[in-house]
Design a protein around this nucleic acid. Sequence first.
DNA 1: CACGATGTCTAGCGTTGCTAGGATGTGGGC
DNA 2: GCCCACATCCTAGCAACGCTAGACATCGTG
Lengths: 195, 195
Amino acid sequence: MSAIQSRRERERAHRHQLIVTAARELAESEGWEAVTTRRLAERVEYSQPVLYSHFDGKEAIVSAVALDGFGELGAHLRRARQTASGLGEALRAVCRAYLEFATERPALYQAMFVLPTDLAFASAETPAPLRAGFDEFVACFSPEDDRRELFAEVVWSALHGMAVLSDSGRIPAERQEERLELLIARIGGGGATAP
Amino acid sequence: MSAIQSRRERERAHRHQLIVTAARELAESEGWEAVTTRRLAERVEYSQPVLYSHFDGKEAIVSAVALDGFGELGAHLRRARQTASGLGEALRAVCRAYLEFATERPALYQAMFVLPTDLAFASAETPAPLRAGFDEFVACFSPEDDRRELFAEVVWSALHGMAVLSDSGRIPAERQEERLELLIARIGGGGATAP
DNA sequence: CACGATGTCTAGCGTTGCTAGGATGTGGGC
DNA sequence: GCCCACATCCTAGCAACGCTAGACATCGTG
């Protein structure tokens, strides 16, 4: 493993991230339909084929962006949960942070949840960042409740539905806060450990 | 309005529906990525340009399929609600019917909720079929509750999230029934009219 | 029968994701 | 210091996509 080899690996890793962030920025400023391999190549100042030496295809690039997104979402939710005191407040903070994330980074959120990707979820070798976000929801329920995972799944589903339906105008966006409060009051409040 | 003119209109309407059902069948058997204008034209035994004499583009065809879907979903939910007795049972029946619809017609459901379409939702002139499905959820809550619309929005969001997250493998599909029961118990049961 | 209008198809444009094969330049052995 | 080998990168191009212009045929009408 010579020094120049390791330098090349560093450069390669750097360019890898360059492509990912370029794709993300382009998507966030003009939408995913504007992210073509040609425009992306132009943006990173390389030719198209170098994209394919880093990724298996366009879908893999989207997946890489999504993976970054899951990392950030996990950290965002964790921060929110840790600044709260008590399980009830934690749930509210995490839910609010989730919707915040979805509305402020719509393109990133799309890559993570709407666009087709290569990411393996329910499988055994699910990447850690993919679990991390979900685990933040789980942590908002009592460890003694053996149904806390189920609660987390339902809350996550509801939040995802609210995010995506309001983003596409299927439900009025201005009532998002009311919906959030209703959800928390019903799911979290008053004994999440209840039968 | 001569007889031959009306005959031509009939033929035209018939071909319109032919295109829509062909697109839907193709999507349901091979997925939407397999629905190209060429394959669709071949399937209805016309050339490509006739598609564009009926629709403004591919997105409009998807929208037409989605519109059909909303009609069917509304009828499906209505049937489910009417076979139940009492508001609580109605909510359970409608929710179950919704998830049933989503899992049994995934391609149709995608056209309605995931794929980009021309459909106008929150606007004033929202087509009736688009409201119909939502109204079935509203009808599951007491007319005296001035927050029944809000309840309906939250339930719909949760169901949509459950449908789409489990379809893409992000939450385990086999626990769908448990999640549904939890949602109903928390949102519907025990006084949907509660503060 | 000839004309005009309506409807349909062939052919092609620009763009997409993706790839083969040649040019370029850098690093290591003599 | 020279030269070869190897890795890297780009030019050029393929098939398929959504969509459209213009030629062609078909049909009802005078």
